[in-house]
Nucleic acid binder design. Sequence first.
DNA 1: CCCTTTTATTTAACATGTTAAGTACATTGC
DNA 2: GCAATGTACTTAACATGTTAAATAAAAGGG
Lengths: 142, 142
Amino acid sequence: MMDSELRAFQKNLPMALLRARETVMGHFRPLLRLHDITEQQWRVIRALYGKPGLEVSALADKTLLLMPSLTRILKALEEREFVTSSMVEGDNRRKLIRLDHKGRAVHQMMSPLSEAEYKKIEAKLGAKKLKTLYQLLNDLSD
Amino acid sequence: MMDSELRAFQKNLPMALLRARETVMGHFRPLLRLHDITEQQWRVIRALYGKPGLEVSALADKTLLLMPSLTRILKALEEREFVTSSMVEGDNRRKLIRLDHKGRAVHQMMSPLSEAEYKKIEAKLGAKKLKTLYQLLNDLSD
DNA sequence: CCCTTTTATTTAACATGTTAAGTACATTGC
DNA sequence: GCAATGTACTTAACATGTTAAATAAAAGGG
């Protein structure tokens, strides 16, 4: 027999998005652990890669991290010498964050593995469906 | 000019899912704050609503919460008398969680508001697209 | 200039995410 | 029965999410 209250609960957009995200992240978490970095730290490293540097706010936007979280994450990444920071000339409120040697090294090692996992997901769902999914997620995010 | 590294970063499934989820949650967070409950506490309340009771593990499955998080959440919900817990007869390892009066009251008040916000999202994206999205998210989560 | 307002980042406090370890009870196989 | 193994839940420790408040510097207006 059906339980309409249960259905309403299970068919729920935030949870459907969360479940899908957890499934996807399940593929990537083992890779992250290899380098002892968190998912959020990896987002920061990826956002900085190939850039001359980014200010903290710009980094927060790109990584979807809130400023207080990012402050702590950058502190940890600096301690591990994955990134460096410096004041912005002409505006001492701003900080410029740059990827350092060790951070670039992690990117070089992780990136191919990450790409390979992504290809698996693409293969499983199908490229066409995946493209549709991106489109719909984008529509939703506007 | 285009930066292929940036594109690879921005077009990234976990972040696309996260961004979409944040957009959706942006609609619901003000409602949650009205009753001073968190998103996760609301998931627990919804999962319990209309049920005679659920064991902690079953609740964790339904709400996509990890057991250690759920332990703390249930403690908070019990202190606020939104739920009650009791040992399961015949197996003293298990706990049965039930929604209490105050929890049901919160559900009654929140549920219509939540439903109204959901309808807004549905209207904005379109029912057909939304259905397709659910389908794709489901495919991904298998 | 100086005072007010805005902007960029950090700190604080509490809730949750995450992995590992602990605890207590149940089950299994001998 | 009982020792070994498995199951259900909790605790611990540290990272991040979230909101509010603090800090410091820049911008603007008189």
